[in-house]
Design a protein around this nucleic acid. Sequence first.
DNA 1: ACCCAGGGTCATA
DNA 2: TATGACCATGGG
Length: 229
Amino acid sequence: MLDRSKLLALYTRLFDSYGPQHWWPAETALEVMVGAVLTQNTSWKNVETAIRRLHKARSLTLPVLMQMDIDDLAMLIRPSGFYNVKARRLKNLCHWLEQMGGIAKLSTVDTTALRSSLLLINGIGAETADDILLYALHRPVFVIDTYTRRLLVQLEMIRGDEHYESLRSAFETALGADTRLFNEYHALIVRHAKEKCKRLTSNSDVYCNHCHVETGAGLIPRSTTVMPA
DNA sequence: ACCCAGGGTCATA
DNA sequence: TATGACCATGGG
């Protein structure tokens, strides 16, 4: 269980430090969904390049993606890495969208059913599904990622070995269904993680988020700086 | 040359 | 249920 007031205090601290993050950076719901797949275990910088290539090729529409050769799609998204599997996953997602009757029809389906349906798509796991639900479809779903885990472990609010669903329901129960809050909260957590990475180059005493040291308790961040000054 | 990134699937035990 | 291999580019 997570403490509501502590979560809100953390959110306030993050928001006061970084301000609104304006997520998800995309023009259409389809672009959000495509980006959610492309960013799997991949830096957003590489995804941006891939998205630009798709735009330039006028390929960010459902009909175009549906008819496009999978190998041509793979070459377009090449900069995002894992391009063969991701091309297949994008095709699977498009096939699902068409089966559902198009993106507009998704608004007639309740969030729980939509989530279950998304998770049946090969290549769409829990986090990608929740990215789509929150940032493309504006459903009150809290996205859990590795940054969220690291930060809460660092703050000693969780142990770190909790399952995805366990953490997600803990956030949603503590905060209540609030799409705008969930949107900004997850974006701020990611921003905070990136912020600490930047410091690695300028201050050798402060380490980035993924510099860890092995201890008996598992992976513990070496950094003692939880929040920026 | 090494480590990692806004994960997920599949085979194996 | 829980590891490990695999996917692959680009930046630190």
